[in-house]
Design a binder for these strands. Structure first.
Lengths: 348, 348
DNA sequence: CTGAAAGCGCTTACAG
DNA sequence: CTGAAAGCGCTTACAG
């Protein structure tokens, strides 16, 4: 029963002191005689008193919680390998700090902004994570307007007052292209994420740069929405072209896996006829056949570091930007030597 | 600035009434003259007043939030198709109700119980979801002890005071087996989830029952931990046996996909040499090649209904148990006719 | 080193 | 229909 629960007044009474002193003793504030503190702590223990977070929250004007809102339609979220790991990393940092994570999942960008507003209007959180950064991301201005501490995953394009925690994904894409070029490929396509998303366009740019550096033209790029079905569709479109690619660099694993499926269904052998690379380093990628060459990111660390930075910011420190070790390319079975042009492969 | 924020006192002053009346007007309590209410609401609007959830929480002794703790090591969570969809469903119900979801992700069962205790000790939530039920699940007793409303996904074995929201998974497994038997298979194996988990052992039982009904012996069953790597390992073990199976029923999609990968790597063609079924209906399952025959569950609805039931329970209603439409088998390309015994396939 | 009191921003009997 | 006051359970100046 809720009423059974002892309060600070019960502890004070039992210890024969004022409520204020109990509070001081509990929070290790100076100015409590050692033996008095002992007496208080003992009384608290005997009563099984747990201070009310609710009351504390009202007094000190803090929520002791951080907010994450994920924008993704329920359908696509299933396959996303990023968030579950990211959240596990966040929790790793929050739990020991006595903080909680409040999570919102919304279907679109409009609902997303509303969710952030609601979260801070209700003062449910002391700070927010801003993930999946977009061009001209409205959330930066919103967070400023709301006056809520925030941390961004990656650096936004415009000016931002918030610390960024970044993990370079360019190097991984470039390594993938270099690897393919080293295997003799010259006709390399890219299945990109949405251009409005920073990591979508950044990976595409990395692809184009790497191609240019190799003296190749990046003519075969198709933009998608990061979903598995898009990966299959994009692969179909690419293979239907005249100058069909001998290798495809996908912007994430689900699309790469779906692309692999499409290619195989079309009668192509991977990597004999077509080489494929992904991005994420999802668990399943190494268990499919052929095992997917991909760019592995450490989403768990990303979550842990982002949480830590946000906590520091809330505590009034000035964490500044931090760069995590870059995502790295992991060659596996889905990439191989470029097929001989003439007898290359059956037409699809 | 936090201090700028108007409080109920500001609204009362501006409307020329007491704080109590403002509260009554806001909460649609009877006993406020229509024009007084108008005046109050107008004042609130003009000041941009948002009632403090924190203060309300302290007054009414409610958190306006629900708790979910997910027990899974960070590594395996990546591939799990269930939770993201489940959470999306939960949110669909919570957001309109002004409720929030607080999420904990913990690595093991010990941390799990601690997480629940902490969540309710801090009164961070008004009710909790109990997912991934186990045999003799300690969480039922814990929730009772803590006196916190709860909802279980599926019915626990022992007595439980909490409403259960169930989705029959037996029928899907049975349909998978029937389908395989119809295709001529007689040597069918099962890659099961952990026996300590209710859905792990229930799916296994469903498999065994279906086999018995078909007059077959379920001799080939290997237990796993539900992770993709286990699926590959179990497949290897099964194929190494003398009486190797012509079909394998996996307890989830990640294991089925990994099993497919292993079989293909071993030189088997699916479904010509080996038929395979999964469980989950994950997005990627239909994009791999061959497309995975699987049992589709509606995790989104499950989340929505569980949230609704929990909210009702918290409101003092007595929701009772509810049964969702059963998961259904979706045949695709990974299942086919049983191969001819003699020339069946290359040895692994 | 300690106490008494006010305050955080709401809600809710209790009177009138 | 409305007001004044107490209460939710803490924290924090302010005195002594």
């Amino acid at each position: 029963m809720p009423t059974e629960r002892p309060t600070i007044a019960d502890v004070a009474e039992r210890a024969g002191v004022s409520k204020g002193l109990v509070s001081f003793a509990l929070n290790d504030r100076p100015g409590v005689a050692p033996q008095t503190r002992e007496r208080i702590l003992a009384a608290a223990r005997e009563l099984g008193w747990q201070p009310s977070l609710r009351a504390r929250a009202l007094s000190v004007n803090r929520a002791f919680a951080l907010g994450l809102v994920i924008t993704r339609d329920p359908e696509i979220i299933t396959g996303d390998p990023f968030y579950p790991s990211f959240i596990a990393g966040v929790e790793r940092e929050l739990a020991p700090a006595g903080q909680a994570l409040v999570l919102s999942v919304v279907p679109d960008e409009e609902a997303e902004l509303a969710a952030y507003r609601k979260l801070v209007a209700d003062r449910r959180v002391d700070g927010i994570f801003i993930t999946d950064l977009r061009h001209d991301d409205a959330r930066i201005a919103l967070a400023e307007e709301l006056g809520v501490p925030a941390v961004t995953l990656g650096r936004p394009e415009g000016p931002s007052p918030f610390p960024a925690v970044s993990m370079d994904d360019r190097a991984g894409i470039e390594a993938a292209v270099d690897h393919l070029v080293g295997l003799g490929h010259r006709s390399i396509a890219h299945v990109a994420g949405p251009a409005r998303m920073l990591h979508g366009s950044r990976r595409r740019k990395a692809f184009e740069d790497a191609m240019a550096r190799a003296g190749l033209r990046a003519t075969m790029v198709v933009e998608t929405d990061f979903r598995a079905a898009d990966g299959a569709r994009a692969t179909r479109d690419l293979l239907a072209r005249h100058e069909d690619p001998t290798a495809i660099v996908y912007a994430n694993d689900p699309m790469a896996i779906a692309g692999l499926g499409f290619a195989q269904r079309a009668g192509l052998r991977v990597p004999e006829h077509l080489s494929i690379t992904g991005f994420d380093g999802s668990d399943i990628a190494e268990h499919i056949y052929p095992a997917l060459s991909t760019v592995a990111t450490d989403a768990v660390s990303w979550g842990a570091v982002a949480a830590r930075v946000l906590l520091q910011e809330i505590a009034g420190e000035n964490p500044g930007d931090t760069d995590l070790p870059p995502a790295r390319f992991v060659p596996r079975e889905s990439t191989g030597r470029r097929p001989e042009p003439p007898t290359r492969r059956p037409r699809t």
